[in-house]
């Protein structure tokens, strides 16, 4: 299995396409950091203008933690799309290229082949997140320095002490990883059903967009399907910046996302085991 995984990793990580997502993240983080560096104060003034009459803010509001939080909020929607760009192509891309039939004429079980693909998809998701972590958290802290985080959420304005933030950000990255693995598993599953490169990527994006749009409608008509929309659970990382943290709710959502990943993985395995490779 280790050798198959090595082969999959070489294939995935030497492909130019794999670096589109990574390049986009670096570029976006750099742009956001630059914009805050030069015009951050205006943005914060605008954001907190309604609170001017209620209390006054002391210290550095624009700090590395705030920038990281804003970057996470901004990119967390796009990250799954960047992941799908690679993971949605892992099987169907090979089918389209004609290399799938060569891999499968080697003495490996299809279960191991798909498992290696799945682990590769997870590793790619992890790579994307690590990159985001280094740039969004690390670089922002280097440029803007540490400080308490002001978060405006449904409960109002929450101030989180700098000392607590490292753990909360790490937990947020872990949660984001779980979310991304769900998207990666979905796109890999769609990839197993397709023989062309673009279809599964587009379909994954459509699923995420449609689910997210439906989730945003707070209408009772959609209530019966809400629990089945995994995108509902993907946004729960923000609750890690509530006070107190609703641990049970977050763990439940993480569990649901993991369950989705396993179901997608199971469907992929079942379908691929019985698939005739005719392309």
């Amino acid at each position: 299995m280790r050798r198959i995984l090595e082969a999959e990793i070489i294939k995935a990580f030497t492909r130019p396409r794999s670096y589109i997502g990574m390049g986009s993240i670096i570029a976006l983080v750099a742009l956001i950091d630059a914009s805050f560096y030069f015009t951050g104060k205006e943005y914060i003034d605008l954001l907190f203008q309604n609170f001017d009459q209620v209390f006054s803010l002391e210290g550095t509001v624009v700090n590395g933690n705030l920038i990281c939080f804003i970057i996470l909020q901004t990119l967390i929607i796009q990250l799954p799309l960047l992941v799908a760009l690679v993971t949605g192509d892992l099987i169907s891309g090979e089918a389209a290229m004609g290399t799938l039939r060569y891999s499968l004429t080697k003495p490996i079980s299809r279960f191991k082949f798909i498992s290696a693909k799945w682990i590769t998809a997870m590793l790619y998701s992890l790579g994307i997140l690590l990159l985001l972590g280094v740039f969004a958290y690390g670089l922002s802290l280097v440029i803007f320095g540490p400080g308490d985080l002001l978060v405006l959420n449904a409960d109002g304005l929450v101030v989180i002490r700098d000392a607590e933030l490292f753990c909360r950000f790490m937990a947020a990255f872990v949660f984001a990883f779980i979310s991304l693995t769900t998207v990666a598993s979905l796109s890999l599953m769609l990839s197993a059903f397709s023989n062309n490169s673009v279809g599964p990527i587009v379909l994954t994006m459509v699923v995420i967009i449609v689910f997210t749009v439906i989730s945003s409608f707070e209408m009772s008509f959609f209530d019966p399907i809400m629990p089945f929309l995994f995108t509902n659970h993907m946004g729960l990382w923000r609750r890690l910046f509530s006070d107190p943290i609703p641990t049970a709710e977050i763990v439940q959502s993480a569990g649901i996302l993991v369950l989705h990943s396993l179901v997608f993985f199971g469907i992929t395995q079942y379908h691929f085991k019985n698939k005739d490779i005719i392309e």
Partner: peptide, 24 residues
């Protein structure tokens, strides 16, 4: 099987190394 297909972005040698990893 039909015309041979390879990973076009890899060298011929690396393609063989990748295939080699599928053998026990």
């Amino acid at each position: 099987i039909e015309e041979p297909r390879f990973y076009p972005y890899l060298s011929g040698k690396l393609n063989l190394h990748v295939s080699a990893r599928y053998y026990p």
